[in-house]
């Protein structure tokens, strides 16, 4: 009886989840089998939308681009974030100021960041090319967003710049949780700074690593803002992520049914990746 009444207290939360999370997903799933245009009647089209996703190279490319973007950002953003956190942990006098400075870009609007970096990458008098020219590296000047081989990496760099402070803040919180006596014991045993970081701090940062990797993976798999603003998915679809494809189908082409099918594919991909990633990282934590 007592256990039953405890479960009753979860009902409001379950109800909220049902209405605001599960119901929209079920609705999207239902919509993905129709030709709904956002208004009017939705006609049943069976598996046609899914068939189109897996039979057209364009959508498979979008999935691959999303994975590439996500992989690069998750790895580099977290490595740089960890580097800054380790550095700032050792410098308490400037830690708070630097943490705030690093965190600021992540609080800025994607629109502003996108446009500013678009000007920096501009082939005509853009900041990056001008800088390279002024230090005698003209040979490295490039059409960063205009070349399909560099456009995705240019956007990736912007995303990393924007969110590296976010990762750093989480790692710094992890460093703060490391007991001082463990550090002290390491020093007394004669461990070098690198050895203390590698064998003491890094294993104890495992929960922070898990949070950072899971959050940045989910965030990057869903990304569309920077590609939308900086390149519109071009050139030649080289920066067209799955989320951007969904946006363009929804609000540019009014293909709500098809966008629904793409959303379901994306949801399955994200659940699959995050589930196994989380399991892998948790196992690592438990084995420490």
């Amino acid at each position: 009886m007592k256990i039953k009444s405890i479960y009753l207290f979860t009902l409001p939360a379950l109800l909220v989840m049902l209405i605001f999370y599960l119901y929209p997903i079920a609705l999207s799933f239902k919509m993905s089998f129709t030709d709904f245009t956002g208004v009017g009647i939705a006609n049943d089209v069976g598996w046609k939308n899914y068939d189109r996703i897996f039979s057209r190279q364009r959508y498979l490319d979008a999935i691959q681009i999303t994975f590439t973007f996500s992989f690069i950002v998750v790895i580099i953003q977290n490595l740089i974030g960890l580097f800054f956190a380790a550095l700032l942990f050792k410098m308490p006098t400037i830690r708070n100021f630097c943490r705030a400075a690093l965190f600021t870009p992540s609080m800025m609007s994607f629109v502003i960041v996108g446009y500013v970096w678009q000007f920096i990458y501009s082939p005509y008098n853009g900041g990056l090319n001008s800088l390279l020219g002024s230090i005698g590296l003209e040979s490295l000047q490039h059409t960063w967003l205009g070349d399909p081989s560099t456009a995705l990496f240019a956007i990736t760099a912007t995303h990393i710049w924007m969110f590296v402070g976010y990762s750093c803040a989480i790692f710094l919180a992890g460093f703060a949780n490391i007991p001082a006596d463990i550090q002290e014991a390491g020093r007394l045993d004669g461990a070098s700074a690198w050895q203390r970081f590698r064998y003491l701090e890094l294993p104890l940062l495992a929960p922070s690593i898990t949070i950072n990797i899971v959050l940045s993976t989910i965030g990057t798999l869903k990304t569309f803002e920077l590609p939308f603003i900086m390149t519109g998915g071009g050139p030649v679809g080289s920066t067209r992520t799955l989320s951007l494809e969904i946006m363009q189908n929804l609000f540019g082409q009014y293909k709500f049914g098809f966008a629904g099918a793409l959303s379901i594919v994306m949801l399955i991909v994200i659940i699959f990746i995050v589930f196994f990633l989380n399991r892998f990282l948790k196992n690592k934590e438990d084995n420490l």
Partner: peptide, 16 residues
């Protein structure tokens, strides 16, 4: 041609 492929028509082009 290579400069034009990814050139933004709404910002850079108009500014130039």
């Amino acid at each position: 041609p290579k400069l034009q492929a990814g050139l933004d028509p709404w910002t850079t082009s108009l500014t130039e």
